[in-house]
Design a protein around this nucleic acid. Sequence first.
DNA 1: CTGGATCTGGAAAGCGCATTCCCACTGCCT
DNA 2: AGGCAGTGGGAATGCGCTTTCCAGATCCAG
Lengths: 360, 360
Amino acid sequence: MAASTLTEVARLAGVSPATASRVLNGSARKPGKDIADRVRQAADSLGYIPNAQAQGLAKSSSGLIGLIVHDIADPYFAAIARGVQDAAREQRRMVLLATTGGAPAEEREAVAAFAARRADSIVIAGSRSSRPEDVDDNAELAAELDRYCRNGGRVAVVGHPVVGATASEGYHVVAVPNQELAGALAARLAENWDGDFVIVGGPEGLLTSDDRIRGFQEGLAHAGHAPAEVLRTSFNRSGGYEAGLELAARIKAGQAEDGGGSGRKLCIFAVNDVMAIGASAALRAEGLRIPRDATIAGFDDIETLRDFRPALSTVRLPLEDIGRLATRATAPGAGNSEGQEDTVPPVRGEVTLRRSTGEA
Amino acid sequence: MAASTLTEVARLAGVSPATASRVLNGSARKPGKDIADRVRQAADSLGYIPNAQAQGLAKSSSGLIGLIVHDIADPYFAAIARGVQDAAREQRRMVLLATTGGAPAEEREAVAAFAARRADSIVIAGSRSSRPEDVDDNAELAAELDRYCRNGGRVAVVGHPVVGATASEGYHVVAVPNQELAGALAARLAENWDGDFVIVGGPEGLLTSDDRIRGFQEGLAHAGHAPAEVLRTSFNRSGGYEAGLELAARIKAGQAEDGGGSGRKLCIFAVNDVMAIGASAALRAEGLRIPRDATIAGFDDIETLRDFRPALSTVRLPLEDIGRLATRATAPGAGNSEGQEDTVPPVRGEVTLRRSTGEA
DNA sequence: CTGGATCTGGAAAGCGCATTCCCACTGCCT
DNA sequence: AGGCAGTGGGAATGCGCTTTCCAGATCCAG
């Protein structure tokens, strides 16, 4: 028993395929009640399931939305994915997933694959890279996206525009105020802190990381603090752990120096929660305690990590909303008549101080 | 500029569409070298991207694999999704995502949607439900899957077979030894424990939860322990939290009773890590400490939760492998010639005792 | 009653591609 | 030299559906 076709349904109902098509999907023309009933009955007596491929081919639109993330198992992306999924469901579309590890070359491939499947829109999450070695791939990615847009595709990028992409029709950016928020975080932290600050950041050229670092430094400067030293490492838990080991050694050295006295304490800002957790783990493994021996803050406010103790100070980002927003921005009728096509409501974050930086 | 078609490429190369098709995709017939080159050149001068919909329609197969999870933001599913994604990439296929919250009715819809898109195979993760209210939906889900399989689709279910599904061609189950492992966990915990055990489980009828509860009880019995009391709650963090509050009250009451002395302590087994974390949070919120006032163990060994302190005793499940296995089981040439079509290599878990149950 | 306007269902032409025939060649053996 | 298998390319068909375009029916006003 092969899947039954519209034609079979039509024949069983004694009507033409055209009519069957009209009743079985939201066509503008509604056939007469009696005929409609007959068709519908025939349809589910045959267990008819429309062939979405054929439909897509015929009306050249697929009801598909492509989502590109670095790693779906990373809770940051998982949260965004949930939002995307949720919005997709609202629009009765399905999401196609691609993971790229953040490499622009793979992102380009993913875009091409989505284009091949005639995805109606594409949402790209994950930090853009401006590293020199990525410049060519970025250019190709931009070109691929541009072509996709010119063919009527809609794109939303979370965070930064794709490096080198020109703002073409259908290209949206969900801006995340990483810099401002990092600045705000620094300001709050500086209020009750006269020790040193150190930043644990991702590799240079990772835009999200760079923005947060820059913002944090600005915040410190504003509060009259000296700039923080920046440790570069990988943008994940193990990067945080490594940096944590390094810092632990320094802290211990410092403590030994002034005889365990009250030297300048260290406040660590890790540019994302996962790194912050890694760093915390390293400090703990080295016998140091937070917030006693050092304080630490992260960024993102990952849900799964909220039960972590000491509770992590961080910046709450509405990750799920971001995914939703991005998806909605690419929806067919996304507020374009207003003249301002790509006005995505701004994302708001919130500095959230907790025990890891000494809050009660 | 609309996306260019095969025909355009063919015309530009001065050949027939048939020939162009043959060179541009792995056809059995290889056109002559010179012609092939001409076609290829024409293709990328036009930036030709094959229309996967049309290809799919023509050869009735889509290169799509559908993944059904309860919630993609749940780290358990995110880990499985990573495995699926990974295996899909191996097979040069793309994954289509559906989240259902675990409701069989929505799962049925998802299967239908995948069938409509002519997904080559479907992977279903997430506990099956045998609750009375789900029995009808389960039946419909089973019927839908059956139809999908009969039309040549391949299905892999993680954990339990779909309730009521008959073992048809192309239907695979990746068995997870929840019961055995829970038993093993109980055995290990019972070795150094003479206090009471209590189980924090999901709603009755959630097969994964039920299996783990049953296995744990068996393990206890085997070790000569009395059966543990079972608290039913929801299968997520907040369920764990609620149960934790309840248990905290009891523990405090018990402590007050024997004057803070050394009454029978409680060892809590939460049927998954996320619930365990929730319960821990509740105990902590009530001023209790782990493992001092009570010990606790979970199940799954979620990666993101490994830095949690006190480190959670749990059963490690190779989630990512499970996803990979399930996906591979549905691959086109999955070891079917051997007679035993659906032999999926067994999943191995490992009891992992850590600080939350008093290990050093 | 009649003319045009409106509505309804059907026939047919694609959507972009794979694939089955089919035909024109080439080279080879008898 | 004639017939043969073998080869390489093109024409045509169909995958399942949507969507014009058409023709017949229905309706209302004049």
